[in-house]
């Protein structure tokens, strides 16, 4: 029995269907990210959970109760917006206490809870300030505290980090994850940034054109992408056209180099793919010419041309090992598990 169930949700605006048959169960305390490009329908799904949009078909069930027809103010949900959306006329403390005030919590109890929440986000002394006196990162933390103060059953985060600087983005995302685990609150996080999704989620739903392409743990999404779109959207991927020599034993040929995959394959031509960190320079493999070398500190990024395409290869820095020079002829290989066979 899942805590939050999205049961065959659909949404159309006029003739345009933005969400097709979206199905998902979220466990209590789980952190699930909706990942996808803009316009993929992830925000629409989130807004249906919040109650700002009414599904054309399907149900939203929270803790066994069908809330599809409930208004947003009856759902006991916390939400954080991309634009912070703090009330400019209220102080930080009054913002955080807003949900408690609408719920009729007595003043004294409210003050205690507000202080507790401000301590939780690490801004215990800013209760008297107004939103315009805070930085973007501080405002978003206050928005998080405001959403959590009334003890919502589900927390919804709509691209909460997109308006922030890169540095604050990383520290705030870690803080969000920490607080989420501490409170064990069921959370949905909408983002178009794959690194964000991979780093903090229990599970990720990759969305594309209103459909959930794949649902899985970050490792599953990255290592075993279920669709071509997921493979391309999450992380960098090097693609190779391959000819299947022996479907039963999984023997293929790329640019004259034979690769044994040891898994059953369809006959004919397939697309083979490998992550930059799976590829390595070896004695045997696909012939390539190095075109560029970037030294990124802990990682060396090599660019090469193989089988008429640009490929990227990452490897850890090793002091004492010389970098290959542009123009060098090399061969590329990967471990068997490092090869992905893309469908279609």
């Amino acid at each position: 029995m899942t805590f939050l169930t999205l049961d065959h949700l659909q949404k159309s605006f006029g003739p345009t269907r933005v969400v097709h048959d979206f199905d998902l169960g979220v466990e209590k305390g789980e952190f699930v990210s909706f990942l996808g490009p803009s316009g993929c329908g992830k925000t629409t799904v989130l807004r249906m959970v919040a109650g700002f949009e009414t599904p054309t078909a399907g149900r939203v069930v929270i803790d066994g109760r069908d809330v599809t027809r409930l208004r947003p103010n009856q759902r006991q949900i916390g939400m954080v917006f991309q634009s912070y959306a703090l009330f400019p006329n209220l102080t930080v403390a009054e913002n955080v206490g807003f949900g408690l005030r609408t719920a009729g919590v007595p003043r004294a109890e409210r003050a205690g809870r507000v202080a507790e929440m401000l301590a939780l986000i690490g801004l215990p002394d800013l209760g008297g300030r107004y939103p315009w006196q805070l930085s973007g990162g501080q405002q978003q933390r206050v928005a998080l505290a405001r959403a959590l103060a009334p003890r919502p059953r589900v927390l919804l985060l709509d691209e909460p980090l997109s308006a922030l600087d890169a540095k604050i983005r990383v520290s705030l995302r870690n803080q969000i994850r920490e607080i989420q685990q501490q409170l064990a609150i069921t959370t949905i996080f909408v983002t178009h940034d794959q690194e964000e999704a991979l780093s903090i989620s229990d599970r990720i739903v990759v969305m594309h054109k209103g459909i959930a392409d794949q649902t899985g743990t970050p490792a599953q999404i990255y290592n075993q992408p279920a669709t071509d779109f997921v493979a391309g959207f999450v992380g960098t991927l090097n693609r190779f056209e391959a000819e299947v020599l022996d479907p039963a034993r999984g023997l293929v040929r790329v640019e004259g180099a034979e690769i044994a995959l040891d898994r059953p394959l369809p006959a004919g031509r397939i697309t083979l793919a490998a992550r930059p960190e799976s590829l390595r320079i070896a004695a045997e493999g696909i012939p390539a010419e190095i075109t560029g070398v970037e030294f990124l500190g802990s990682v060396q990024r090599l660019r090469a041309r193989a089988a008429g395409r640009e490929v990227v290869l990452d490897r850890f820095n090793e002091p004492g090992v010389a970098l290959p020079q542009p123009g060098a002829q090399v061969r590329l290989a990967a471990a068997q598990a490092g090869w992905l066979v893309l469908p279609g």
């Binding site: 103010n73 939400m79 959306a85 009330f87 959403a147």
Partner: peptide, 11 residues
């Protein structure tokens, strides 16, 4: 968003 934030906070 102000309206939505208020709504979702029970207002």
């Amino acid at each position: 968003e102000w309206r939505e934030a208020a709504e979702v906070l029970g207002a």
